[in-house]
């Protein structure tokens, strides 16, 4: 079973994230960059399938050179090798363009199963499985809280508001995973050491047979015109509970005509 896991490096979602006023793209250089947390669940799922059925797990990343940190994390968890697409021209690409790069890179790989996170924590778009399904002509099984792969069929429980949908499709397929699907392993010391020796192949747009006009800020299908910090909320009221805290709370609700 050949499994490819898509991994994105993002600014830590627990920190204050910013756009760069120079060109309205994510300020990645100054950010605390980490592996997209959602992708750890996809890696864990890939390793679980591999452990049960054999095969190889390849990590695929599109991002600047610094994204190697995210690749190392995936390799130290147990992935076998990685492909890193890095090219100045990709800077500022939108979802449509990134999907074109990922699709081109995937076409150079062998895969039975593609796994990715259910969303990137920076954009929260949750669209990559749909975009890649469309481009590669393979089925999309997105938003999984459970995955089983058996006899050439993948079956998921797609998480919904009040339960799930059972959805199945023939392989090869692309599956995205929520954080309810498993508990990602921590890299062991041995894993971290081994990761340093695992192969990471770097590819440029030319290696993928793509033209620079297909990607990048200047050719993007969407444009960020301007941005601003959200206006701070006016000072609220804070009262200590001196036996009358509940009463004050209810009085406040009444003043807002809520009760």
């Amino acid at each position: 079973m050949n499994i490819v896991v898509l991994v994105k490096q993002v600014p830590d979602s627990g920190t204050e994230r910013k756009l760069d006023p120079a060109d309205n793209t994510v300020a990645r250089a100054s950010a605390d960059n980490v592996i997209n947390e959602m992708d750890e669940y996809a890696i864990e799922e890939a390793l679980t399938v591999k452990e049960a059925q054999g095969g190889e797990v390849t990590v695929l990343t599109v991002g600047p050179d610094s994204a190697t940190d995210a690749i190392r994390k995936a390799l130290s968890m147990g992935a076998d090798k990685a492909v890193h697409v890095s090219d100045e021209a990709i800077h500022g690409s939108d979802a449509v363009q990134i999907s074109a790069v990922l699709a081109a890179a995937l076409q150079q790989l062998e895969y039975d199963l593609i796994l990715c996170g259910a969303e990137a924590t920076d954009s929260q778009m949750s669209v990559m499985p749909a975009l890649l399904s469309e481009r590669l002509g393979i089925p999309q099984l997105s938003g999984a809280r459970k995955l089983t792969v058996e006899g050439g069929t993948a079956r998921i429980e797609r998480q919904t508001d009040g339960g799930y949908w059972a959805v199945e499709a023939p392989l090869p397929a692309i599956v995205s995973t929520w954080d309810t699907i498993n508990e990602p392993r921590y890299p062991s010391f041995k894993g971290i050491m081994a990761a340093k020796k695992k192969p990471v192949e770097t590819k440029s747009l030319a290696d993928l047979g793509l033209d620079a006009s297909a990607v990048g800020l200047a050719n993007a299908t969407t444009q960020v015109l301007d941005f601003a910090g959200r206006p701070p909320k006016g000072e609220g009221v804070k009262v200590p509970d001196e036996g009358d805290g509940a009463q004050k709370f209810v009085d406040f609700l009444a003043s807002q005509k809520i009760v």
Binding site: S13, E16, R17, K18, L19, N24, D122, S123, A220, T221, T222, Q223, V224, L225, D226, F227, A228, G229, R230
Partner: peptide
């Protein structure tokens, strides 16, 4: 509204 509500962005579709 991006980044947990910290940033407001105006954008448009170009294609």
């Amino acid at each position: 509204v991006a980044f947990a509500g910290q940033t407001i962005v105006h954008s448009k579709v170009a294609t």
